[in-house]
Design a protein around this nucleic acid. Structure first.
Lengths: 361, 361
DNA sequence: CTGTTAGCGCCTTCAG
DNA sequence: CTGAAGGCGCTAACAG
């Protein structure tokens, strides 16, 4: 391929003139500009090489979004799609590119953060929190941690997960429910994707350190139930990844193992929707036989049958804020910590339990 | 930030030794290696700068995917999500990054293709075909054109759109339908997103040059209908973008303007599913009152109510092939042209028309 | 308004 | 196994 120097030579000018023609055309006399443009066309020169420009400028004009799942998985995950959409909007507004990076496994994550040609990162709730934060810091680029347990000196965007979960549980308690199950996201960082059933009293369920949102939501459920005299330790928990197929398997497991409950507290809308579908297939009426609350308020939540009662979070706005931070980072000395509000949206998937306290069938 | 030279100095070695420590550690004596690693840690050096490496190596280790809509739009578009997923899989396998580029408007598209830090492009059915092809060629990077009218010297991946459409229409004809409407994708490149209604005889509908898939699918419908003595010119057409909300508006328009038809030929599954939902809301039974055929076979097609009869295309495989080509391009002299097969999948959204030939209500 | 110069940070010969 | 040198392609600063 032709370089700038070649164009300069065939146009009979210097390299910087060619550079100016491409970068500040108004500064070069029209006749010379035409000559340079003609030379460029003749040599099939497409403009300054972005790689060289990136080195020279010290920036890549793109940001990286590190996701907790494979990229294919992300495409099948409604919450993430909406989050990505928010990030992408802001990138568009800044005329910057968006590189999608996956943190499914350690190596991929490390490679991505170390080698991506970007000017900053949005880290979204990956499993290897410490490692990624360390890598991002070594890279010397601005980054935000979204929905994860990041150290205090790292800028973060969080959600009032605990408060939202509390409100969801309280809503069901207010309706009169007393027999609950939790349809949880992954409790710990593990290669195995589940789903897993944890009966009341199962000590495994205490291992809730890996994921910020899981832990906080569970704590919120526990808060509200405790107020009603119900110990979270006595509530059956099904642990399952979200995302289209995983959610369906978790839903089936819950219905198999906890047939006696009248209300399910789900940690994600797709889990909740999958549960309603599984229930319908088994002839369990929602909400008459079983009430379901979700979390997130993904677009499908209002379209499901019945429409889902859920804890709404500003997903796209969260993506926008995250991206915005990367383009306008705070100085490292004063990290930004944002906690976004959530809101309980009551739709039609929740109702008082049957007065006889039992399910049909 | 520390550079390689700084690390070399504090470790008391030369730059190339540091380089070796990071790129071929086995070549450097363990004791020296340790010293270098310690120095790197001390200086908070995170490894070779990807920008410099990209310039030096002449590659960015990422590919660009140019999409015909905004990135946010792409996230709300089932077909594109699946296509992106396929591309992403192959990128993962190659340990390469994926940059999402939008070609909504000319400027964004041009900027993306000219400036993205990538080693090649997948061009997916954008409106500005010639311009993007020209830019990609000037960039001197390998690229494939997917689902678009590319010149013969450009490698392309196409679909048997026409054959698929023909089969869809023939299926409905075989069931006995004679009164059709077409629920079309955008017929021409226009800023306005519609939807538009084209009554029989409307000359506007001839302007079908912008989009390869639209034109071919319409031609396939026309082929089959012509065999049954029906001129495509006598069939009402509603033109609408696909994607969640646009599809819903197009569906409503079709039901408003073409109430007499017994069968609808849709060019995209999300349009078809939106139509079935709109029909249900109006008390029109599918397939009893109205048969609907889609195109693409997105995952939701088998989950809709009723499950959608559609022309299946290997969406993810198409994405995989496209990405694979970019990583293993043919020499420019011998472009590759692939036409992927399609298959009619008959589910429950099609049935013979009512014997009285009328809709209920 | 145009041309010259000096790197951006790295990697790959090649010589020691 | 290690060190020195050259250059990837570009642009900012400065001199003319």
């Amino acid at each position: 391929m032709a370089r700038m120097l070649d164009v300069a030579r065939t146009a009979g000018v210097s390299r910087s003139t060619v550079s100016n023609v491409f970068n500040s055309p108004e500064r070069v006399r029209p006749e010379i500009r035409k000559r340079v443009e003609a030379a460029a066309r003749a040599l099939n020169y497409g403009g300054p090489d972005p790689r060289a420009r990136a080195l020279r400028a010290g920036k890549a004009n793109a940001i990286g979004l590190v996701l907790p799942v494979s990229l294919t998985g992300a495409m099948h995950h409604s919450y993430l799609r909406n989050f990505i959409g928010g990030v992408a909007e802001v990138c568009d507004e800044h005329h910057a590119g968006l590189a999608l990076l996956s943190a499914v496994d350690r190596k991929a994550a490390a490679r991505g953060v170390r080698e991506a040609l970007v000017d900053g990162f949005v880290l979204h709730n990956p499993a290897e929190v410490e490692m990624l934060v360390a890598l991002a810091e070594r890279r010397g680029l601005p980054f935000v941690a979204v929905d994860m347990d990041a150290p205090a000196h790292v800028s973060s965007i969080l959600l009032d997960n605990r408060g939202g979960a509390r409100r969801a549980a309280r809503h069901l308690l207010d309706l009169g429910h007393r027999r609950f199950a939790v349809l949880s996201l992954l409790l710990e960082r593990t290669g195995d994707s589940g789903p897993f059933y944890h009966p009341p009293g199962d000590p495994d369920r205490r291992v809730v350190e890996s994921f910020h949102d899981t832990r906080e939501r569970l704590a919120g459920f526990a808060d509200a139930l405790a107020d009603a005299g119900i110990a979270i330790g006595d509530v059956p928990i099904v642990e399952s990844r979200s995302g289209d197929e995983d959610a369906a398997r978790g839903a089936a497991l819950l219905l198999d193992r906890a047939p006696e409950v009248t209300a399910v507290l789900a940690m994600a809308d797709d889990s909740a929707i999958a549960l309603m579908e599984a229930a319908r297939r088994r002839g369990i009426a929602v909400p008459a036989d079983l009430s379901v609350v979700g979390f997130d308020d993904i677009p499908q939540a209002s379209l499901s049958v019945p429409p889902l009662t859920t804890v709404a979070q500003p997903i796209r706005e969260k993506g926008r804020r995250a991206a915005h931070y990367v383009f306008n980072p705070h100085p490292p000395a004063e990290p930004q910590h944002v906690v976004l509000p959530v809101e309980l949206v009551v739709r039609a998937s929740t109702a008082p339990p049957r007065s006889d306290g039992r399910r049909r069938g």
